[in-house]
Protein backbone atom coordinates (compact mmCIF):
# COMPACT_ATOMS: atom_id res chain seq x y z
CA UNK A 1 0.00 0.00 0.00
CA UNK A 2 2.92 2.36 0.43
CA UNK A 3 3.67 4.74 -2.39
CA UNK A 4 5.45 3.82 -5.63
CA UNK A 5 8.42 5.86 -6.73
CA UNK A 6 6.40 7.51 -9.48
CA UNK A 7 3.85 8.85 -7.05
CA UNK A 8 6.52 10.05 -4.64
CA UNK A 9 8.22 11.91 -7.51
CA UNK A 10 4.93 13.54 -8.37
CA UNK A 11 4.42 14.46 -4.72
CA UNK A 12 7.88 16.01 -4.55
CA UNK A 13 7.14 18.03 -7.68
CA UNK A 14 4.06 19.40 -5.97
CA UNK A 15 5.97 20.14 -2.77
CA UNK A 16 8.47 22.13 -4.86
CA UNK A 17 5.69 24.54 -5.80
CA UNK A 18 5.32 25.82 -2.25
CA UNK A 19 7.57 27.90 -0.03
CA UNK A 20 6.91 25.55 2.84
CA UNK A 21 6.58 21.83 2.55
CA UNK A 22 3.52 21.54 4.72
CA UNK A 23 1.60 23.87 2.42
CA UNK A 24 1.50 21.02 -0.10
CA UNK A 25 -0.63 18.98 2.25
CA UNK A 26 -3.92 19.61 0.43
CA UNK A 27 -2.83 18.46 -3.02
CA UNK A 28 -0.93 15.49 -1.58
CA UNK A 29 -4.08 14.32 0.12
CA UNK A 30 -5.77 14.36 -3.29
CA UNK A 31 -2.97 12.21 -4.67
CA UNK A 32 -3.55 9.81 -1.81
CA UNK A 33 -7.25 9.76 -2.52
CA UNK A 34 -6.74 9.21 -6.21
CA UNK A 35 -4.51 6.28 -5.39
CA UNK A 36 -6.85 4.31 -3.14
CA UNK A 37 -10.23 6.01 -3.51
CA UNK A 38 -9.88 7.22 0.05
CA UNK A 39 -7.13 8.46 2.32
CA UNK A 40 -5.54 5.44 3.87
CA UNK A 41 -3.46 5.51 7.04
CA UNK A 42 -0.51 4.27 5.01
CA UNK A 43 -0.81 7.29 2.76
CA UNK A 44 -1.03 9.52 5.81
CA UNK A 45 2.24 8.12 7.10
CA UNK A 46 3.78 8.63 3.67
CA UNK A 47 2.59 12.23 3.49
CA UNK A 48 3.71 12.97 7.02
CA UNK A 49 7.21 11.85 6.08
CA UNK A 50 7.14 13.87 2.86
CA UNK A 51 6.09 17.17 4.39
CA UNK A 52 7.63 16.78 7.83
CA UNK A 53 4.63 17.03 10.12
CA UNK A 54 3.24 14.32 12.36
CA UNK A 55 0.74 11.72 11.19
CA UNK A 56 -1.98 13.02 13.44
CA UNK A 57 -1.57 16.51 12.01
CA UNK A 58 -2.14 15.10 8.53
CA UNK A 59 -5.08 13.11 9.83
CA UNK A 60 -6.50 16.25 11.40
CA UNK A 61 -6.64 18.02 8.05
CA UNK A 62 -7.76 14.94 6.16
CA UNK A 63 -10.66 14.33 8.52
CA UNK A 64 -11.71 17.99 8.65
CA UNK A 65 -12.57 18.47 4.99
CA UNK A 66 -15.43 16.42 3.63
CA UNK A 67 -13.90 16.19 0.16
CA UNK A 68 -11.18 14.02 1.62
CA UNK A 69 -12.76 10.65 2.05
CA UNK A 70 -11.92 8.48 5.01
CA UNK A 71 -13.57 5.43 3.48
CA UNK A 72 -13.36 3.88 0.06
CA UNK A 73 -15.76 5.55 -2.37
CA UNK A 74 -17.37 3.95 -5.41
CA UNK A 75 -16.02 4.59 -8.88
CA UNK A 76 -18.53 7.41 -9.24
CA UNK A 77 -19.13 9.82 -6.42
CA UNK A 78 -22.58 11.37 -6.88
CA UNK A 79 -22.84 14.64 -5.00
CA UNK A 80 -26.34 16.07 -5.24
CA UNK A 81 -26.80 19.64 -4.14
CA UNK A 82 -29.39 20.23 -1.43
CA UNK A 83 -28.79 23.93 -0.82
CA UNK A 84 -31.28 26.71 -1.30
CA UNK A 85 -31.25 27.46 -5.06
CA UNK A 86 -31.40 23.81 -5.95
CA UNK A 87 -33.96 23.15 -3.25
CA UNK A 88 -36.40 25.66 -4.73
CA UNK A 89 -35.81 24.17 -8.16
CA UNK A 90 -36.89 20.77 -6.84
CA UNK A 91 -33.61 19.11 -6.05
CA UNK A 92 -35.61 16.90 -3.68
CA UNK A 93 -36.93 14.83 -6.53
CA UNK A 94 -33.50 14.66 -8.15
CA UNK A 95 -32.13 13.41 -4.86
CA UNK A 96 -34.96 10.90 -4.59
CA UNK A 97 -34.45 9.56 -8.04
CA UNK A 98 -30.71 9.11 -7.54
CA UNK A 99 -31.36 7.49 -4.17
CA UNK A 100 -33.98 5.22 -5.68
CA UNK A 101 -31.77 4.11 -8.50
CA UNK A 102 -28.70 3.46 -6.37
CA UNK A 103 -30.53 2.32 -3.26
CA UNK A 104 -28.10 4.34 -1.21
CA UNK A 105 -28.51 6.65 1.77
CA UNK A 106 -26.30 9.63 2.40
CA UNK A 107 -22.57 8.75 2.42
CA UNK A 108 -23.22 5.14 1.46
CA UNK A 109 -21.35 3.13 -1.15
CA UNK A 110 -22.83 0.14 -2.94
CA UNK A 111 -21.35 -3.32 -2.63
CA UNK A 112 -19.92 -3.31 -6.13
CA UNK A 113 -18.15 -0.04 -5.38
CA UNK A 114 -19.76 1.65 -8.38
CA UNK A 115 -21.57 4.53 -6.68
CA UNK A 116 -21.19 6.60 -3.58
CA UNK A 117 -24.04 8.94 -2.85
CA UNK A 118 -23.93 12.14 -0.84
CA UNK A 119 -26.04 15.22 -0.36
CA UNK A 120 -23.90 18.33 -0.37
CA UNK A 121 -24.15 22.04 0.25
CA UNK A 122 -24.05 24.56 -2.62
CA UNK A 123 -21.63 23.56 -5.34
CA UNK A 124 -21.61 26.95 -6.99
CA UNK A 125 -23.94 26.14 -9.82
CA UNK A 126 -27.02 27.96 -8.55
CA UNK A 127 -27.69 29.49 -11.97
CA UNK A 128 -28.30 26.04 -13.37
CA UNK A 129 -30.03 24.53 -10.35
CA UNK A 130 -30.65 21.76 -9.57
CA UNK A 131 -27.09 20.56 -9.97
CA UNK A 132 -25.17 17.35 -9.38
CA UNK A 133 -21.51 16.47 -9.44
CA UNK A 134 -20.07 13.19 -10.59
CA UNK A 135 -16.52 12.88 -9.28
CA UNK A 136 -16.71 16.65 -8.83
CA UNK A 137 -17.56 17.24 -12.54
CA UNK A 138 -20.65 19.43 -12.51
CA UNK A 139 -23.89 18.83 -14.43
CA UNK A 140 -26.57 21.49 -14.29
CA UNK A 141 -30.26 21.80 -14.99
CA UNK A 142 -31.06 18.20 -14.11
CA UNK A 143 -34.48 16.64 -13.87
CA UNK A 144 -35.39 13.46 -12.01
CA UNK A 145 -35.60 11.61 -15.34
CA UNK A 146 -32.31 12.93 -16.68
CA UNK A 147 -30.52 12.13 -13.48
CA UNK A 148 -31.89 8.61 -13.61
CA UNK A 149 -30.65 8.27 -17.20
CA UNK A 150 -27.27 9.59 -16.15
CA UNK A 151 -26.96 7.00 -13.41
CA UNK A 152 -28.00 4.25 -15.79
CA UNK A 153 -25.49 5.43 -18.36
CA UNK A 154 -22.67 5.52 -15.80
CA UNK A 155 -23.57 2.05 -14.66
CA UNK A 156 -23.74 0.60 -18.21
CA UNK A 157 -20.87 2.46 -19.84
CA UNK A 158 -18.54 2.68 -16.88
CA UNK A 159 -16.57 5.55 -18.46
CA UNK A 160 -12.99 5.63 -17.25
CA UNK A 161 -13.11 9.39 -17.28
CA UNK A 162 -16.00 11.64 -16.32
CA UNK A 163 -16.05 14.97 -18.13
CA UNK A 164 -18.42 17.78 -17.18
CA UNK A 165 -19.14 19.00 -20.73
CA UNK A 166 -19.93 15.50 -21.90
CA UNK A 167 -22.34 14.88 -19.03
CA UNK A 168 -23.89 18.27 -19.56
CA UNK A 169 -24.46 17.57 -23.24
CA UNK A 170 -26.00 14.20 -22.62
CA UNK A 171 -28.07 14.85 -19.49
CA UNK A 172 -27.95 18.52 -18.53
CA UNK A 173 -30.35 21.39 -19.07
CA UNK A 174 -29.99 25.08 -18.30
CA UNK A 175 -26.42 26.12 -17.52
CA UNK A 176 -25.17 28.94 -15.32
CA UNK A 177 -22.78 30.15 -17.99
CA UNK A 178 -23.12 29.19 -21.64
CA UNK A 179 -20.18 31.13 -22.92
CA UNK A 180 -17.49 29.19 -21.05
CA UNK A 181 -14.79 27.60 -23.16
CA UNK A 182 -15.04 23.92 -24.03
CA UNK A 183 -13.24 21.80 -21.50
CA UNK A 184 -12.39 18.22 -22.26
CA UNK A 185 -10.61 17.38 -19.05
CA UNK A 186 -12.26 15.30 -16.42
CA UNK A 187 -11.54 13.14 -13.45
CA UNK A 188 -11.34 9.42 -13.09
CA UNK A 189 -11.87 9.18 -9.35
CA UNK A 190 -13.56 10.97 -6.51
CA UNK A 191 -10.93 13.67 -6.75
CA UNK A 192 -11.47 17.01 -8.45
CA UNK A 193 -9.57 17.31 -11.74
CA UNK A 194 -6.84 19.82 -11.00
CA UNK A 195 -4.45 20.40 -13.85
CA UNK A 196 -1.59 21.65 -11.69
CA UNK A 197 -1.55 18.63 -9.45
CA UNK A 198 -2.13 16.22 -12.28
CA UNK A 199 -5.48 14.82 -11.25
CA UNK A 200 -7.18 16.16 -14.40
CA UNK A 201 -7.19 13.77 -17.37
CA UNK A 202 -7.86 14.72 -21.00
CA UNK A 203 -10.48 12.99 -23.09
CA UNK A 204 -10.92 13.16 -26.85
CA UNK A 205 -14.51 14.13 -27.27
Amino acid sequence: MSWEKELIDKANEIIELYPEKRSALGPLLYLAQEKDGYISNDSIIQISNLVGITEVQVKSVASFYSMYKEEQTGKYLLSVCKSISCEINDSRSVIDSVKNFTGLENYETDNDKVFTFEEVECIGACGGAPAVQVNYETVEGLTPEKSLQMCEWLKEERPELVVADELQEKFGGVKSFDWAIKDNTGSSYSVPGFQNIGTAKEKNL
Partner: peptide
Protein backbone atom coordinates in the same frame (compact mmCIF):
# COMPACT_ATOMS: atom_id res chain seq x y z
CA UNK B 1 -2.46 14.82 19.51
CA UNK B 2 -4.73 16.88 17.27
CA UNK B 3 -8.34 17.60 16.56
CA UNK B 4 -9.81 14.92 14.36
CA UNK B 5 -13.07 15.31 12.41
CA UNK B 6 -15.10 18.46 12.61
CA UNK B 7 -18.32 20.02 13.79
CA UNK B 8 -20.21 17.93 16.25
CA UNK B 9 -17.79 15.07 15.79
CA UNK B 10 -14.63 17.02 16.58
CA UNK B 11 -12.45 15.24 19.10
CA UNK B 12 -8.91 15.23 20.35
CA UNK B 13 -7.14 12.08 19.35
CA UNK B 14 -3.89 10.43 18.36
CA UNK B 15 -3.00 8.67 15.14
Amino acid sequence: IEFIQRGNKTQVNTF
